[in-house]
């Protein structure tokens, strides 16, 4: 759970960085998109293979992450068959409480996101010629920006608890101070991801990028 989660957080940071290339203009962004599918790690692996290796790692991470989550969920359900009549949580954060249902919601939207921007089967704005045009086209739609604002929020909340929790599981929570630092970092990463991911669609929508 912790390892796959951290791999995915690493991916999100990279993905966010790539998205920000939109601000450098169409050429830079399209070249980046091209490069991803091009000769990374060549000649260690044949051209174009890297992206598939990368995708395989991501799919494996997602599957293992979900498998672990479902196992944990099931164990919790088995361990607590009869619910309290009255139950009050004292320490649980909103993000910690929403990890499971939040995870399902964000996974659902992930499928749409992949269909939209990777497989291109769910493009709302229609055909395009370059990746840059595609992104601009999609985020000109107001409700698409809103949808992504909500989705990224669920992702970042998941990251908020997930980041701290992953490090705690890996043994980094060594003191009350370490706990505060890890939670601070989790907040920082979550906020960074939110701003980093949302600034581009917002810019597109308002026409700062076109």
């Amino acid at each position: 759970m912790a390892v796959t989660g951290l791999i995915m957080i690493g991916f999100l940071l990279m993905h966010m960085y790539g998205n920000l290339k939109m601000f450098l203009g169409a050429e830079a962004f399209d070249h980046y998109a091209e490069w991803l599918k091009g000769d990374i790690l060549y000649p260690l692996v044949p051209k174009g293979w890297f992206i598939w290796i990368f995708r395989a790692v991501m799919v494996a991470s997602v599957v293992l992450h979900m498998y672990s989550a479902i196992t944990l969920w099931k164990r919790a359900m088995d361990a607590n068959p009869s619910a309290y009549q009255v139950k009050k949580q004292l320490a649980q954060t909103y993000s910690a409480r929403t990890m499971r249902w939040g995870g399902i919601i964000l996974a659902g939207l992930l499928i749409f996101h992949l269909a939209q921007f990777t497989v291109h089967s769910a493009l709302v704005a229609g055909a395009y010629t370059t990746p840059y045009e595609m992104v601009v086209g999609e985020f000109r739609i107001w409700w698409m920006v809103l949808l992504y604002a909500i989705w990224i929020a669920t992702v970042c909340m998941h990251v908020r608890h997930g980041f701290w929790s992953a490090f705690a599981t890996l043994g980094a929570n060594t003191s009350a101070k370490a706990r505060a630092v890890l939670n601070g970092c989790a907040w920082a990463v979550a906020l960074l991801l939110y701003i980093g991911f949302m600034i581009m669609p917002v810019a597109v929508f308002f026409g700062w990028i076109n």
């Binding site: 944990l72 164990r75 919790a76 949580q89 608890h161 929570n173 003191s175």
Partner: peptide, 21 residues
């Protein structure tokens, strides 16, 4: 018993304040 997901309710109610870490 269930698995730990690092929520912290346990340490909050612990009468002897066993550290969460």
């Amino acid at each position: 018993f269930g698995g730990c997901t690092n929520i912290g309710e346990c340490a909050e109610v612990c009468p002897k304040q066993i550290p969460f870490d």
